[in-house]
Design a protein around this nucleic acid. Structure first.
Lengths: 220, 220
DNA sequence: ATTACTAGTAAGCGAGTAT
DNA sequence: TATACTCGCTTACTAGTAA
């Protein structure tokens, strides 16, 4: 949708055109939008064609109402602003289920980790991690976690090797509870590793390539 | 502000660029905005010139952060969406104080009205109404009151004449409590009549032509 | 008064490319 | 790899005006 049409739609909504007919001439609308009468008229024609407004054209005046389609579009926009300014305790990602390398299983089966997961997260994870690939550009959102308080899993040693610290954040995947694990050393990547009490692939019926929604919660 | 720049700013904010530097190439941004690398680059230059973002240009990547000015602009936008979808129990107007015809005083001094104001609104109004002229196009917002429950002041008679019914809504003008009165018969006009316990012109130090903010509250 | 078409002008776009 | 310039093309804008 063209940005200027969205602005026009918003202006109409502000004047009460959601679930209500409002009476507004193209010249009045033009003044609101700080443009010409002709342009305002064109905007209305375009919005009408897209089914975002409904018009009743009289000889002197026109009645305008935002349609359900138009309202939805505005609500989408509203949600985005809420994400920016209100839902600041969480980050929302869309991603694709990825076939892991089986590494996750090796780590989640280490007693040193399991014991801490149980203590600090309150569950023993199903072996393995569910890997989700996010859009490369969205890794920027992960930066927000940088200065935030995490659930820290401490490093530990076995006879053979050392297992590094891990930061965890409570999270949901398609509504199911769990946590994401971020190894402390590695750089932020575009792959999220999700652990859960459940076998998520089975519970949520996930196959490689499926789109999922992940919400990560944090404090501050 | 150009609509497409606002959309760009919002996109950056969604990626976490408020109070945070994010790492994003013009090509990545272009993908997010569904436009070309050149256009995204131009947008960033424009936003930078307007002081809405701050950039650190490296050879390979650029770090971008939304500035205070940019954040304010986004918050303004957020507020408008809140007005559309959340603050549905009120209407907000900006208007100009208008010199009345003295009619208000005549009506507000009628015992038949005074008694009902005291009973239903909880105060005896200072004699006279404060008249506020709103933008002509904003009279559309008043339509929202049409189907809404009002505080109804009943008609009554004196020896000489009949005084008609009036609908009242609790309201605030520049933060001060009172009510607006809408005569039942008259068509919605672009003049709001405000009554209050206080002498508002004095209390708020208002002169003709001063800009005021009025909030009208209603239920459903 | 309105809306909205036409036509000429201005602004925006993106391919090519320098840096 | 990047960013962002030039330039030809397209889209958007508004004055004039018909309906």
């Amino acid at each position: 949708m063209k940005p200027y049409l969205l602005q026009t739609l918003k202006e109409l909504a502000l004047l009460g055109a959601i679930k209500n007919k409002i009476e507004i001439s193209s010249l009045e609308l033009a003044k609101q939008l700080e443009t010409s009468q002709q342009t305002a008229s064109r905007y209305l024609v375009e919005l009408d064609k897209k089914g975002m407004i409904k018009r009743e054209l009289g000889i002197k005046k026109q009645l305008i109402m935002v349609t359900g389609i138009g309202e939805e579009k505005l609500q989408e926009e509203h949600l985005q602003y809420k994400q920016i300014f209100e839902l600041t305790d969480r980050i929302i990602f869309k991603g694709k289920v990825l076939s892991g390398l089986g590494e996750g299983r090796y780590y989640t089966e280490q007693d040193g980790y399991i014991e801490q997961f149980r203590e600090k997260l309150g569950f023993v994870p199903y072996p393995g991690t569910l890997n989700v690939e996010i859009e490369y550009v969205e890794r920027n959102k992960l930066r927000l976690l940088k200065n935030s308080k995490a659930i820290n899993i401490e490093e530990f040693q076995t006879k053979n090797r050392t297992f590094g610290s891990v930061r965890c954040f409570r999270a949901k995947i398609n509504g199911s509870d769990g946590a994401i694990v971020l190894p402390l050393r590695t750089h932020y990547s575009n792959i999220l590793e999700f652990i859960s009490y459940n076998h998520l692939r089975e519970k949520l019926n996930l196959k490689d390539g499926d789109e999922v929604k992940i919400v990560i919660y944090f404090e501050n």
